[in-house]
């Protein structure tokens, strides 16, 4: 081969560029045998974190199962942008039913495969945060407590982006959305609401729960592959920035996902049978302001009437996560 320009991906991190590694050490995304389960040509926005996350997750799951995979999808951006009539971006068997029933549909698929003696075929359910933490929560909890053989993946972009950016149970405090605007005395989403579904999943004592971000491909792929080594209910909560809904630059999706982790706002960890087993440490801690400033949904905190008090409350949330999950390396706390 003649001269080839070597690109170093993820510059500015500790992660080595994939193309410099031996083929066996490369990420699934860097392998030529990648399944492209969610193939190109779909209609996600530029810089969509969910499209990135879904591709990472499904390609890793396809590799882990040798292609014996069925995906069930709840209603939402991922479903809409991937199947505009008459096109489909899915190169694996894929079923979409409703907004709130993805976990139950996935459980039904798994039950059918078990009844047919086809347990070699595995099932992944996927939804956004609305379809997971809000409207699909009942069916999700049911799937967890029955320990159905499903990996359910939540692509969390912290709001109802498909319907025009409204608040969900995963929207952080102070964030503006279409129904938590910067109006009135307490601009943005209120403090003291919302839920952590990874922690709720752990309370079901299911075999495996993990969180990840689209900034750390290898960590995400590792967790998908690990999840596929378990039988029973598994939950993966992936942090996926939304340039449209967050008012962020399309080029900043990976950067924001990394900052969410490095600030402590989004704790990255693994848990087995209800107990945290691994925590992804913060490498270079940054103040939450670094994460908030590039996003228009938090612009009201830094405008003509800055709200350092609100920023401090968000910093306190990050600090609480850091203390609770032990996110700083030993000796830094």
């Amino acid at each position: 081969m003649a001269f080839q320009q070597i690109k170093l991906y993820q510059t500015g991190t500790f992660v080595a560029g994939n193309r410099l590694l031996d083929p066996e050490q490369r990420s699934v995304q860097a392998r030529t045998g990648r399944s492209n389960s969610l193939t190109s040509g779909h209609r996600a926005c530029r810089g969509c974190g969910e499209a990135l996350g879904a591709r990472y997750v499904l390609d890793a799951a396809m590799r882990a199962t040798d292609g014996n995979l069925v995906a069930v999808n709840s209603t939402g951006c991922l479903e809409v942008f991937s199947t505009p009539y008459p096109e489909s971006s899915w190169q694996l068997p894929w079923l979409h039913s409703l907004f709130g029933n993805g976990p139950a549909v996935a459980a039904g698929v798994a039950a059918a495969l078990r009844a047919q003696g086809r347990e070699d075929i595995r099932v992944v359910g996927q939804a956004g945060d609305g379809g997971t933490v809000d409207i699909g929560f009942g069916t999700l909890s049911g799937m967890f407590e029955r320990n159905d053989d499903v990996l359910f993946v939540c692509y969390d972009n912290e709001g109802y982006m498909n319907t025009g950016v409204q608040r969900s149970g995963a929207t952080p405090p102070a964030a503006t959305t279409a129904n938590t605007k910067a109006l009135g005395g307490t601009p943005g989403n209120v403090f003291g609401q919302g839920k952590s579904v990874p922690l709720i999943a752990m309370a079901h004592e299911i075999p495996y729960v993990a969180t990840a971000t689209v900034a750390e491909l290898r960590d995400l792929e590792y967790k998908v592959e690990k999840a596929m080594t378990f039988r029973g209910a598994r939950y993966l909560h992936v942090f996926v920035p939304c340039p449209l809904g967050w008012g962020a630059a399309s080029a900043d999706t990976v950067k924001l996902a990394r900052l969410a982790k490095e600030t402590g706002l989004f704790p990255v960890f693994e848990a087995e049978a209800g107990t945290v087993t691994e925590v992804s440490k913060i490498r270079r801690q940054v103040p939450v302001e670094d994460y908030l400033r590039p996003q228009k949904r938090f612009a009201h905190l830094f405008g003509d009437q800055p709200r350092p008090d609100v920023v401090a409350r968000l910093q306190a949330r990050a600090d609480r996560n850091i203390a609770r999950f032990g996110l700083l390396p030993e000796g830094d706390e």
Binding site: V70, V72, L95, S97, L98, G100, N101, A104, V105, A106, A107, G108, V109, A110, A111, A112, L113, A115, Q116, G138, T139, S141, G142, E145, R146
Partner: peptide, 18 residues
């Protein structure tokens, strides 16, 4: 299942899987 909504949804998934 945890509800009738879940019951019909599981049937949808199972039926889709043949």
């Amino acid at each position: 299942v945890e509800s009738e909504f879940g019951a019909m949804s599981a049937c949808i998934g199972a039926s889709g899987a043949g």
